[in-house]
Design a protein around this nucleic acid. Structure first.
Length: 412
RNA sequence: GUGCCCUUAGCUCAGCCGGUUAGAGCGCCUGGUUGUGGUCCAGGAGGUCGCCGGUUCGAAUCCGGUAGGGCACCCCA
């Protein structure tokens, strides 16, 4: 029988990874709380329709990347490939429209059947936020600001740049799309195969093609700004102004686009050049048409998602681990006595490391490996006098303290 | 889904124009220290050379397939 392996593109979060992972989540959650974004946890699977309707039948995510299966009741179920659709579904099924504005923070695993790469797994984890019911650009600014501060708190902001663009309103976008298709049709034969395909499916996407031949054609392509309605221009100007007021730097990237119709106005990505071709670290935008598309009441929305694995790879500073106190009993009687004290102190939240076997030498080595700040040694000698030997693991000094007073020496 | 690269000890890697018992560093274990870790010294354990098949007198080494990882594309966090 072949050795058991994890499913391709999945991996275990060992304690060390999990600690980092949790730190990212905790940092995001704390800032989310500060902004009033309450945590929401939706199921990791949904009716397939939830994602089909929102992502569109033409997107790669729907056409080839979803984990879709039929459950025993015959329903088509999909492991969520992203969080926004699920949160929107919750909003709709919970009939929350008269509680607007609503602010949500979420985190959890997402699933996409893709070819794994560095910074890209089939099961990966995201943090994300959604703001429903705010049509004003202050919403866009707030959402971006929250993202920027999370990156800052994680110490990764220096490796990230905020790229910003606008997709305008429907009127702007329709006009632009028509102009773009007309232009590219004129150069159809020189377009890459991928881009020829995109011409029908997703013409805006041609703008960020990496194909060299495409790039020269794109340079001469019509510019979005020329097709923005005054209202859309004003909206974008107010987003930029809001960011500037907060001292959040950004660069305009006119090629930053989204393919789906319900996206509008602001599109942004915090990108990095440190993760190979996986440059997007935290990305989002405004999606005023999404909830309506899903069959809910027309509701403005803006939000973003960020990959926890990618953030973890970028971050270099992690909070120091709490250093435990290692209990070292010598002999059965001492073991019994210390187990009881450990039980009480652990109950008070004091981290006690205590092994299960071994002589003093072994147990000291264990204390060292555990990063203990103190070792509490109790042998027959100490036990007879109700005392413990307290060893400072850094300096090596030892002192004798009464067992009854142990707790006060171990606090802090 | 397409192209290219990689896979040897728990980890990081050397060995690879085929040829006796496959190596190093780190880690692990034991001893030097009967109740004292981290440094040092000595010793030891640990490998179906990813897997399957082929070529050959002989394969870690060459060839084919397959799985996993990586890079680029696609797409995206």
């Amino acid at each position: 029988m072949a050795t058991l392996q994890p499913v391709r593109g999945t991996h275990d979060l060992l304690p060390d990874d999990a600690r980092k992972h949790n730190h990212v989540v905790a940092t995001a959650r704390a800032l989310g709380d500060a902004y009033g974004y309450g945590e929401i946890a939706t199921p990791i699977f949904e009716q397939t329709e939830v994602f089909k309707r929102t992502l569109g039948d033409t997107s790669d995510v729907v056409t080839k990347e979803m984990y879709t299966f039929e459950d025993k009741g015959g329903d088509s179920i999909t492991l969520r490939p992203e969080g926004t659709a699920a949160v929107a579904r919750s909003y709709i099924s919970g009939k929350m429209q008269d509680q607007l504005p609503l602010k949500f923070f979420y985190h959890g695993p997402m699933f996409r059947y893709e070819r794994p790469q560095k910074g890209r797994q089939r099961q990966f984890h995201q943090i994300g936020i959604e703001l429903f019911g705010v049509a004003d650009p202050v919403g866009d600014v707030e959402v971006i600001a929250l993202g920027a501060q999370i990156l800052e708190k994680l110490g990764v902001q220096d490796w990230c740049t905020l790229e910003l663009n606008t997709l305008g309103d429907t009127e702007s976008r329709d006009a632009y799309r028509a102009a773009l298709v007309a232009y590219f049709e004129g150069h159809r034969d020189r377009l890459s195969e991928d881009s020829k395909d995109r011409l029908h499916r997703n013409p805006l996407r041609i703008l960020d093609s990496k194909d060299k031949g495409d790039r020269t054609i794109i340079e001469q392509a019509p510019r979005f700004d020329a097709y923005l309605t005054p209202a859309a221009q004003d909206f974008f100007a107010r987003v930029q102004e809001g960011l500037t007021d907060l001292g959040i730097g950004y660069t305009r990237n006119e090629r930053l686009v989204r393919g789906l119709d319900y996206y509008c106005h602001t599109a942004f990505e915090f990108t990095t050049d440190r993760l190979g071709s996986q440059s997007a670290v935290l990305a989002g935008g405004r999606y005023d048409g999404l909830i309506g598309t899903m069959g809910g009441p027309e509701t403005a929305g803006v939000g973003w998602a960020a990959g926890i694995e990618r953030l973890t790879m970028l971050a270099e500073q992690w909070p120091a681990q709490a250093r435990p106190v290692t209990f070292i009993p010598l002999g059965e009687a001492a073991d019994k006595a210390l187990r009881k004290i450990a039980f009480e102190l652990r109950g008070q939240g004091i981290a006690i490391d205590m092994g299960y076997s071994g002589n003093l030498k072994r147990r000291m080595a264990r204390a060292n490996k555990a990063g203990a700040r103190l070792a509490v040694i109790v042998g027959d000698d100490e036990l007879a006098q109700n005392q413990a030997t307290l060893r400072d693991m850094d300096g090596g000094e030892q002192r004798t303290v009464p067992l009854a007073e142990l707790a006060q020496y171990l606090k802090n």
